[in-house]
């Protein structure tokens, strides 16, 4: 069985993938489904789901919750994906360099990483957003700044072990250039753990954004799920739907990302499953 068929036979992973595809579809179709701005007040405030013409009800100002969720999907995913990419762009090169060269460079990089891991990360994110003022950019940056160190650690570990493999040693002996070895020999073999980790980072980033939003550090011009949960949570007693549905959206997305991540992990490490089936 190759990795792909193993992934395909994992029910959870397929469900997760299905959810993700649905999400992408929603993001792409948002302008068609709800052409109006999600901020527009379109109905009676605090209308219950299905009671009026609104599938998921309206919020405290009479905005369509469903429209918010559909448009929020785009921004929430954007924040999740972009901040993850930025974190990878910082974390992977640092980890690669540290793991490949070792010695003093490794020591320096690891001290630097440790440094960032020592500052309480959520507190650091808050301070960064407070300094730069809450905008899409500063939020993405803050999330990236606190999420790269684990990436560096992971990649360093992978490089350390892969570097001693025969085919890498062979490439060195043949006299291939260092960048070439890193990019063509080692990096491709670290892709699997990177993908697994990235899927979880996207989920964490979405959650982190919601926490920032709750503390009043969200971008007020962007409709995100985190904003919706935060803004609706205090009305949970009299209008549960305002925060419940965006909460469900976050949950399903995180669930999907986890299932897919797990599926990839299991598919690439077949040993785990086999052994257990004894």
């Amino acid at each position: 069985m190759n990795a792909f068929t193993r992934f395909a036979s994992n029910r959870g992973a397929i469900v997760g993938l299905g959810l993700l595809l649905l999400l992408v579809a929603v993001v792409l179709l948002a302008p068609l489904l709800y052409p109006q701005s999600p901020w527009r007040m379109v109905g009676r405030p605090m209308g219950a789901p299905l009671a009026g013409s609104f599938l998921l009800g309206t919020d405290t100002l009479g905005r369509d919750v469903a429209a918010g969720i559909v448009h929020g999907a785009r921004v929430s995913l954007l924040i999740g994906v972009v901040s993850t990419v930025v974190a990878l762009l910082i974390g992977v090169p640092l980890g690669a360099v540290a793991g490949y060269f070792g010695g003093l460079i490794d020591d320096l990089v690891m001290r630097f990483t440790e440094f960032f891991q020592t500052i309480p990360s959520f507190a650091l994110a808050i301070v960064v957003v407070a300094i730069l003022q809450p905008t899409l950019l500063s939020i993405v940056l803050a999330i990236a700044i606190v999420s790269w160190p684990p990436v560096t650690r992971l990649i360093r570990g992978e490089f350390l072990s892969l570097r001693s493999r025969e085919y890498v040693q062979a490439a060195i002996t043949v006299g291939q250039s260092t960048p070439r070895i890193i990019f063509t020999q080692i990096l491709p073999n670290t892709l699997a753990p990177i993908i697994v980790m990235a899927s979880l980072m996207v989920a964490t980033a979405i959650l982190l954004e919601s926490s920032l939003s709750f503390l009043g550090l969200g971008d007020p011009n962007l409709m995100t799920w985190g904003y919706m949960v935060g803004a609706g949570r205090s009305r949970i007693i009299d209008a549960w739907w305002i925060s419940f549905f965006p909460g469900v959206a976050i949950f399903l997305t995180v669930l999907a990302l986890n299932l897919v991540g797990e599926g990839i992990n299991d598919a690439l490490n077949p040993r785990l499953r086999k052994e257990d089936r004894k």
């Binding site: 959870g12 959650l207 926490s211 949570r233 205090s234 949950f251 997305t253 995180v254 257990d276």
Partner: peptide, 28 residues
Amino acid sequence: RVGRWSDSAITTLALVFYATPLFWIALM
């Protein structure tokens, strides 16, 4: 119990707590 329903139940439950914003659970 990997792969069985109790595995899925535990994994999902764990995810519910992980994926629900903490401030929402707290108020709830």
